[in-house]
Design a protein around this nucleic acid. Sequence first.
DNA 1: AACTAACCTATACTTCGGTTTAGGAATGGG
DNA 2: CCCATTCCTAAACCGAAGTATAGGTTAGTT
Lengths: 213, 213
Amino acid sequence: MNLSASATELSRVFVVDDDASIRASLDSLLRSVGHAVETYGSALEFLQNQKPGDAACLILDVRLPGISGLDFQAQLQALNIDLPIIFMTGHGDIPMTVRAMKAGAVDFLAKPFRDQDMLDAVAAAIERDRKRRQQADAVADLRNLHAALTPREREVMVHVTTGLMNKQIAHMMGLSEITVKIHRGNMMRKMEAASVADLVRMAEALGIGEGVG
Amino acid sequence: MNLSASATELSRVFVVDDDASIRASLDSLLRSVGHAVETYGSALEFLQNQKPGDAACLILDVRLPGISGLDFQAQLQALNIDLPIIFMTGHGDIPMTVRAMKAGAVDFLAKPFRDQDMLDAVAAAIERDRKRRQQADAVADLRNLHAALTPREREVMVHVTTGLMNKQIAHMMGLSEITVKIHRGNMMRKMEAASVADLVRMAEALGIGEGVG
DNA sequence: AACTAACCTATACTTCGGTTTAGGAATGGG
DNA sequence: CCCATTCCTAAACCGAAGTATAGGTTAGTT
């Protein structure tokens, strides 16, 4: 059996709904297309288990025991858990929908919904998460490199990405030019930057010293 | 009278609704807080008049004579008219709301709505447009500079922003190194780039030759 | 035919970037 | 106390970048 037929990469879907029958049917539906599924009856239950490294998304009923799905969405953001969310609702209204979408929800489905709509939403959510992870991983790598810099090297990096010459940097930092060159060389090696152009792009990704745009 | 009291910058709101009374009340509401307002009874009417240079937004009833507001939204995108849209609806449902929000609507208000909700939405929309314009203007300036480059200069610019050395560029283009230097110097002057760092940021803004990611 | 723009090249020179080698000083941990 | 790290500097050197100056070709315009 080819376990990874439809899911070329691992995809995990978390379902949070207090209705066991909904959980069961979603579980079956999602597994049928190759997603790994974990279901929970409440937000708390979900929070207690931790999420692995797969591309994932969260299917949430707006009405949960104890907490509103919308509030839970905000709570996750506050906790820095960035998981694409698909909302379901039995008695949703427009303001609720708008609020959820503004807060970044992938989709908002009114029950009952068509299976295909849910599958499409999940596919979109998983894809979004996959891209976000990819981007986040790249930035994390850069952060590691950047963290290995000494204070002086970090400082020089800012000035280099600003477009200053060694001479100017030396003057600003109260150093001799040759010292700047040393710091600069060490910095470039540690950052694994082959050129200033590379370095500038890294700095942009790290959110360091913007300039033109 | 201080005409620009509440509106520190000019803001223009387009209202498209087939109901004249709605148009009138929105016109009055929006003018009261300092927005310039133009109302139209149909999408076509709006399209025939052209939009000026102010920061602006569009208030649209989802149900318009002849065309759906959602379809009109898509049409505007196709026409490359990027105006923040606030939808109003009397009989809206959740799928409609989701579709509009996914397509980039700023807000989606169910009638009747509170005046303050509309004013908040308009303020957010205007602000979004202001930022978009600012960004677009900056890019337009860059495009003008870039358009003034000769083909060779453009080519050299790509290679420079990739981080290549003059020697390598020369080899790739089948030129002598000195010729590359000339093109490069002319290019930097025409682009008004004081440094490679500057140039790289310009290239990013122009969407030219990405590198690191 | 005269002119302009874009293109290519060379010599010569200056400045800038970068590495190597070789030190000295301060800090903090084992 | 020794050791590692960070920090600063210098001399010497090489290669890369950049700027004249001076020339040439081709193609299209007037």
